[in-house]
């Protein structure tokens, strides 16, 4: 099953996103981390995230912009400097429609930029479309998972 990593510090937003993803009907495993440093640790597989069976590399990352410790932009920059993660879609999921944030995110190589909607029903519908697109329609697997050693080779 494909893993989705949600990087979100706001409890209410995390709850709503998890609920919307669960109800999407698109099978996946959702992992939550609540700050920028934890996102980097998770992806690097360091510290408490060293066990890849419990904390698998994600097929999709939802990243908030405003986060404690490292910001979403800094996490994005960190990810895009690592060739082994080049095929992982990184989606900004934020309530910021500030054009400066949108521009910066794309300039740093974000895959897509989505606005959180405050209306739960709209968000449920959106989650289904978003997960269907990224987990079922778009091709982003380059089969790194079949040979974990290839990650280290990069």
């Amino acid at each position: 099953m494909k893993t989705v990593l949600l990087v979100e510090d706001n409890d209410d937003d995390a709850f709503l996103t998890k609920l919307a993803c669960e109800r999407s009907g698109i099978p996946h495993l959702l992992k939550l981390v609540t700050d920028g440093d934890a996102a980097v640790d998770y992806l690097a597989g360091t510290g408490v995230y060293a066990d890849r069976v419990i904390h698998p590399l994600p097929s999709l990352i939802f990243l908030d912009v405003l986060l404690p410790n490292r910001s979403g932009m800094e996490v994005l920059e960190w990810i895009r400097c690592r060739p082994e993660f080049v095929n992982i879609p990184v989606i900004m999921l934020t309530s910021s429609s500030d054009p400066a944030h949108i521009h910066q995110a794309y300039a740093l190589g974000v895959t897509s930029y989505l606005l959180k909607t405050a209306v739960p029903q709209e968000f449920m519908n959106a989650a289904r479309i978003i997960l269907k697109y990224w987990l079922q329609l778009n091709i982003s697997e380059i089969e790194l998972e079949s040979s974990p050693s290839s990650i280290a080779l990069n």
Binding site: S97, P99, I102, H103, Y106, S112, Y113, L114, L115, A126, I129, I130, K132, Y133, L137, N138
Partner: peptide, 17 residues
């Protein structure tokens, strides 16, 4: 495929200004 492009890229995604 056209529907995927419409629903995701033309509807959900916020494009660069």
């Amino acid at each position: 495929m056209a529907k995927a492009i419409k629903d995701y890229w033309l509807t959900q995604n916020i494009p660069p200004a």
